[in-house]
Write a protein that binds this DNA or RNA. Structure first.
Lengths: 225, 225
DNA sequence: TGGGAAATTTAGTTTAGCCTAAATTATATT
DNA sequence: AATATAATTTAGGCTAAACTAAATTTCCCA
């Protein structure tokens, strides 16, 4: 879509900052370092480079984390579009399962051309969701309307249907598969406990709701009914 | 197939050394530098690293170029398998044409997993030739029998059918398309001139053979009839 | 066989991106 | 408000992989 020059490392930083801004509200040095598995000192160095690049890709004030500039945002969305199209393609066309696509897409996303991006999108009929239920930015890098809501944004007691679970935690995955439920196809009723952040799941055709002993993380998305 | 650790740069060097050894008989510093578009000095530096790696990937004697060790050969063939499978996949599955696949494959070849390699191979029915007619090493990295012959290996006057042209020169490509012939589908009779190395092509349904004003290079392959 | 051109290597720099250790700034607790 | 702890930045260094310029080796030919 736009001009390049960006290294793999830089694209990873931009993607991470974008992601953290969405989920945590801000992208701090330490969180970025965690996500990328580098030291905080390395993050500081890179953020400074990105902020003094031409054009700047992040806005930066010492000790207060990073925000993407419009240019940085565009670059991030480009990588995210690559990633999610690739995940979808690997699943639909090459028979990957749901949980195998991520690592592969994480490497491919940096090297595919706009030409390949477009051919993949076409061959899939320009999908708007990837296999995890995450939205795929369109050709103009706009995110589609999203019916998903962050679990942590639900009011306690509010109910929601889990038709798909975006980026589920390993614990949730393990549990769902232990009851024979594949997250992309299963259906359950959730509510957020009023007393704590544990997940409470009502399985269809089962009498009792199940309380999962795991924290509600901001990475879990559900569809409100 | 085997262990990794190899950088993109190293894989490119190994691939180039393999290629040059096949076509030129040897891989000299300057030829490698040309192919990779780096300076000869950089090549010397890298060859020395590859030779003193553990295990060594090339055998190196100062001022006498590089030869791949069995380890280096294996690594090169792995990359070549990736490259040629990807070219085939891009053409068959995503509708790329013949001449668009190379650059894309050149970047993807370094990042696909063995898993993806295998899925692509399976989905294509384990092909043994890529869209250029080049052989694809099998899972065990053995090259299949090859019916292609280097044009420069033909005896003067010997005739051959061009069903495909492997790695054609830009001049040949331009000519072939100017007469409406797509190399993968067209058919012509070639013979090597007795007086020089120019290409002589007899087109079906045309009375006179055409003599192309271009050198026979070692990159042009034809199928002997 | 000696000498010049071409090929190759050495030496010394550069840039990207990471690291550790130490210093600094922000936040939280009492 | 004082200070302990957590978060962040600075300083200095390392490796991979490129570069330029200079030195060296090989090769070929008169």
């Amino acid at each position: 879509m736009l001009r390049e020059n960006l290294t793999v490392a830089i694209e990873d930083y931009l993607k991470t900052i974008h992601e953290l801004t969405l989920t945590d509200g801000r992208a701090t040095t330490n969180r970025i370092a965690e996500c990328l598995e580098v030291t905080p000192a390395s993050v500081t160095g890179m953020i400074q480079r990105l902020a003094s690049a031409d054009p700047p890709l992040v806005a930066y004030h010492k000790h207060h984390g990073a925000k993407l500039t419009p240019d940085g945002e565009r670059a991030a969305l480009e990588v995210i579009r690559h990633h999610r199209l690739l995940e979808t393609f690997l699943q639909q066309t090459l028979g990957y399962t749901w949980d195998e696509v991520h690592a592969e897409a994480d490497r491919l996303e940096h090297v595919i051309s706009e030409e390949l991006e477009e051919r993949i999108a076409q061959s899939l009929g320009n999908p708007t969701q990837d296999p995890h239920g995450e939205p795929i930015p369109n050709r103009e890098l706009q995110l589609p309307e999203q019916s998903w809501v962050r679990l942590s944004d639900l009011a306690p007691g509010q109910r929601a249907a889990v038709q798909r679970v975006g980026s589920p935690t390993p614990e949730l995955l393990r549990y769902l598969s232990s009851i024979g439920m594949v997250p992309t196809t299963g259906l359950a009723i959730l509510d957020r406990s009023e007393f704590d952040d544990n997940l409470r799941i009502q399985i269809e055709n089962q009498p009792e709701p199940v309380v999962l002993g795991l924290k509600v993380t901001q990475q879990v998305y559900v569809e409100v009914v």
